[in-house]
Write a protein that binds this DNA or RNA. Structure first.
Length: 530
RNA sequence: CAAAAGUUAGCUCAUUUGGUAGAGCGAUCGACUCAUAAUCGAUUAGUAGUAGGUUCGAUUCCUGCACUUUUGACCA
């Protein structure tokens, strides 16, 4: 504790700032749930945590989408942005900052950063020439065009020859610095497969990229040249910086970077890896600012083994999903059943089966079969039993003694699935112990102490499991804790560490003997198959 | 076309440095009754994509082929 006061441990992490071109999809929900789990885990072990999420709202695509809907761009952004926010509420995401790139505090930060890079000599005016597809809003390589100068994605539209002045960022200048970075900090980009992608890309040689657009005004003007608008990515990445500002502090780089910088972890989908692993560090090098510690690019989701896409019409609506099944089931499935980092599949039948098997049958029922016996044979209080009286070789205690360290290691490496697997070995062993020891028979035979030991060991194991699972299923863990007679609420982010510190509650044997138990009822109701 | 990753029980995945493969889910049978038809046990199944090579021995190393996925510069 003293150590904590003299040297406060902080942890800042981000989700992407989601583009408000459309309503949130399941992929955004997936990233955000994972980020929330990391944030909750770090808070649980006593760190000061800043979880940043938000929305990216500039760019021509937004402007055009708004127009097509007959809306003012800002109005459109407000609507979609609040859609993200309300989904995060439904999914029980405890973010600390929600940054919108259209917020007025963001502009001075972007301006100042631009200025800094400009003074470094890393921004220059150049000519962007090439075939431009208006529908894509992209310059196209000649080799990608269909016969007749048609865009391959929009075969009914001819591309246009553009020759425009743009501002460029000297990315090429940072090639060797970036390569050194990847070399010296091999865990900067995770997982390894993502790192290799980046290494390959960078090895091929980096070209400068344009960071401004003309004929577009939904964005920030380039300082001293208002005909140009700052390119949306340059603006968006800096949202991570603006988000660090305290609500009442001045929007300056110095203020923003004074407290939480550098970011410990950028959690992203693999589609935006390059922006975070190449452009972003180069921009920061140019501005002479410290770099984030880790970038983790997770995989994509498929549905029933098929790529998800609007054209296929097989999208998963996260709002619909959470309305039908609740946040706990969804959080659990995506974190437990999908190897974080790899691509993963969502199949509704499988989802229901897994969640029922683990949360209702194994975990929920374990508590629900034990509490009634405790009521009947122990007057509704935790059996009068000391952990010290239970040998370390006891089948549950033996697992529980090393579980905390193993699980913490898994959470730290973002191996959520493996964390769950480790915890569930304890839960399954508990169900097994009850069957083998048959405490109801022990009590009927008058063997009170033997029965008490069984029930204590099981209740304590459920408690430990609930505690360690709380970053993933906080509502369920809270319900379990309360049925065990605790008052803790795992959603109370400012007090959970003080009330139930990790060093104590993550270990086995802390359930107080004679504690009065709460009311018992199933903590997780089985889901119906679709 | 090029590069990278992958192809292990019906499904989702594990198998630190090569010694004939494991878990969860599902299925079948049995046991028990404290419990949310829950739990426990047993069974089930894999010539580890394919064809070769190195080796006493390869899922694990090398090569060819097939299939899947990703990347190949500004698509959040």
């Amino acid at each position: 504790m003293n150590d904590r006061q003299t040297k406060p441990k902080t942890f800042a992490l981000t989700t992407p700032l989601y583009y408000v071109n459309d309503l949130p999809h399941i992929g955004s929900a997936y990233t955000t749930m994972a980020a929330d789990v990391v944030a909750r885990f770090e808070r649980l072990r006593g760190k000061s945590v800043l979880l940043i999420t938000g929305t990216d709202e500039h760019g021509q695509k937004i402007q055009r989408t708004a127009e097509s809907l007959g809306l003012d761009p800002q109005k459109h952004c407000d609507l979609v942005s609040s859609g993200f926010d309300s989904l995060w509420q439904k999914l029980n995401i405890q973010y600390d900052r929600f940054i919108r790139t259209t917020s007025e505090r963001h502009h001075p930060i972007v301006k100042e950063f631009w200025q800094r890079v400009w003074e470094k000599g890393d921004i220059y005016q150049g000519q962007q020439t090439g075939w431009y597809c208006v529908a894509c809003e992209e310059f196209k390589e000649e080799r990608d065009l269909l016969p007749g100068n048609k865009c391959s994605l929009h075969p009914n539209r001819e591309v246009e020859w553009r020759d425009e002045q743009n501002y460029f960022f000297r990315l090429s200048k940072y090639q060797s610095q970036l390569e050194t970075l990847y070399q010296e900090r091999s865990d900067f980009i995770q997982p390894v497969s993502r790192r290799n992608e980046v290494l390959n890309f960078v090895r091929q040689g980096l070209q400068d990229f344009s960071i401004s657009r003309v004929n577009m005004d939904w964005g920030f003007p380039v300082p001293n040249d208002p005909h140009h608008t700052i390119y949306v990515w340059f603006d968006a990445l800096l949202g991570y910086v603006t988000a660090l500002l305290d609500p009442d502090s001045q929007p300056t780089l110095e203020k923003a970077l004074s407290q939480w910088w550098p970011i410990d972890l950028h959690l992203i989908g693999k589609d935006i890896l390059r922006f975070h692993a190449v452009y972003w560090p180069a921009m920061l090098m140019s501005a002479e600012l410290p770099l984030p510690k880790h970038i983790f690019g997770h995989g994509f989701l498929t549905k029933d083994g098929q790529k998800i896409g609007k054209t296929l019409g097989n999208t998963i609506d996260p709002v619909d999903l959470v309305n039908r099944y609740g946040s706990e089931a969804i959080r659990y499935y995506f974190l437990k059943e999908i190897e974080f980092g790899q691509d993963g599949d969502f199949n509704e039948t499988r989802f229901v089966n897994i969640v029922n098997a683990d949360l209702a049958n194994d975990l929920g029922n374990l508590l629900n079969r034990t509490l009634p016996m405790t009521k009947r044979y122990c007057q509704g209080i935790v059996p009068n039993c000391l952990s010290a009286d239970i040998p370390d070789t006891h089948p549950l205690k033996a697992i529980g003694l090393t579980l905390s360290d193993r699980v913490a290691e898994k959470y730290e490496s973002l191996a959520f699935s493996q964390a769950c697997a480790a915890i569930f070995t304890l839960i399954r062993a508990s169900n097994k112990l009850i069957d083998e020891q048959a405490p109801w028979a022990l009590y009927k035979q008058g063997q009170q102490q033997a029965g008490d030991r069984v029930l204590y060991a099981v209740l304590e194991s459920v408690r430990q499991a609930a505690y360690l699972l709380s970053p993933i299923i906080p509502d369920l863990s809270t319900e379990i804790y309360q049925q065990l007679g605790f008052l803790n609420n795992f959603n109370d982010k400012n007090q959970i560490y003080e009330a139930a510190p990790f060093e104590v509650h993550s270990t086995w044997g802390v359930l107080p003997a004679n504690q009065r138990l709460g009311d018992s009822k199933p903590v997780f109701v089985r889901l119906e198959l679709p």
